Simulated scan of single mutants.
Amino acid sequence: MKKRLQVFISSTYADLIEERQAAVEAVLNAGHIPAGMELFKSGDQSQKETIKKWIDESDVYMLILGGRYGTIDQETGKSYTHWEYDYAETCGKPRFSIIINDNALDEKVKEKGQDVLEREHYKEYRDFKDTVLSKICKFYSDIKDIKLAIYESLKEFEKDETLVGWVSGNDVGRFIEIKEENHTLLKENMSLKEKVEILEEKVKKNLEFNGYSYEELQGYLQSKLISLPGDIFNDNITGDEISAMDLFLKSAKLFSIGYEFNSGEKVTSFIHYRLTPILLNFGLVEKLKVGTAIKFQLSESGHKFILKLEMDNFQSEC
């Protein structure tokens, strides 16, 4: 839906009547809404409060700067035009300025006389003009330049999604429909979020071992050292100690098949008394009765833990 922006037009008045009229026409022809103090009565509020209200309710602030500084506001010591420009900035309104060029001002003086120039507050005018020139602005020589500058600037502001604007009554029905669609999408999004949280919780629990996370258990087994008796292993294990993690990995095949408690094999007996109790505590190994024998083998958690270790090792080698 097309939004209509309310544009507050600020300028001195008597010297820029034609320019302001051209600006109002340009804003209207661009499909937007002009606003300025000469279009409204002040009502019961003070003039400044009324100006604030209209700037607050406008989407864009536009300044037309000629050769005059304007009537001074006794409270701030600034002209009303200068004060409006500063107030629009404090409100966070996007501002654009159209400034008369020097040649056009000279021609205006020849045509209208010295009243179109600032004489009483010239320093304040120059300071204000310097401030305006320090921002992005456009220059005009005649009415056509003003209209073109407004068309170009408003086209850019129309693209700004942060500007609310006004919506035609014909579009209100569609607006309500979109609002309802957004509400439905929001509810669906919240439902999906809850499902994701439930799935994440399930995944987290699936990677827990007797209440401990995979990382916690891995760290513990890696830090748990087991003393090695001399030449119990025939492979390349060296040193007097081995971590429970490394011993678990080396004996994973034994636990996967399972071994009987009464096995007289020396390595199996060592593993049974030094490693198996640790693994039983974390539920990685389970004790089963097979006939009259007792068998120890990997539990479901143990298989899952070994598989995760192997995948981590594989990914680190890639």
Rank of each mutant, 00 (worst) to 15 (best):
K2H: 06
K3P: 02
L5R: 08
V7G: 02
S11W: 07
L16P: 01
V27C: 06
L28V: 13
N29F: 08
N29S: 15
H32F: 06
H32W: 07
L39D: 10
F40M: 04
S46C: 05
K48D: 10
E57Y: 05
V60L: 00
M62G: 00
L63S: 12
I64G: 04
I64L: 15
G66C: 11
G70A: 13
Q74M: 06
E84S: 08
Y87Q: 01
A88S: 03
I98T: 04
I100S: 08
N101R: 13
V109C: 06
K110A: 12
K112T: 09
Q114A: 07
R119D: 12
E120Q: 15
K123Q: 14
Y125R: 14
K129V: 08
T131G: 02
S141C: 09
Y151L: 08
S153G: 04
K155H: 10
E161M: 10
T162S: 14
G165H: 07
G165W: 00
S168L: 10
N170I: 02
V172T: 10
R174M: 05
I176Q: 09
E177Q: 13
N182T: 01
K187C: 02
N189A: 11
E194N: 14
V196N: 11
V203L: 14
K204E: 12
S213G: 02
G219P: 04
L228Q: 00
D231P: 12
I232T: 02
F233D: 12
F233S: 11
I242D: 02
A244V: 08
D246L: 12
L247N: 07
K250R: 15
A252T: 11
Y259H: 15
F261A: 07
N262K: 15
S269F: 00
I271A: 08
L275V: 05
P277E: 04
F282D: 06
F282A: 00
L288V: 07
V290C: 05
T292N: 10
T292R: 08
K295P: 03
K295G: 00
Q297C: 10
S301P: 04
G302D: 01
G302T: 07
F305H: 04
L307E: 13
L309Q: 07
C318W: 12
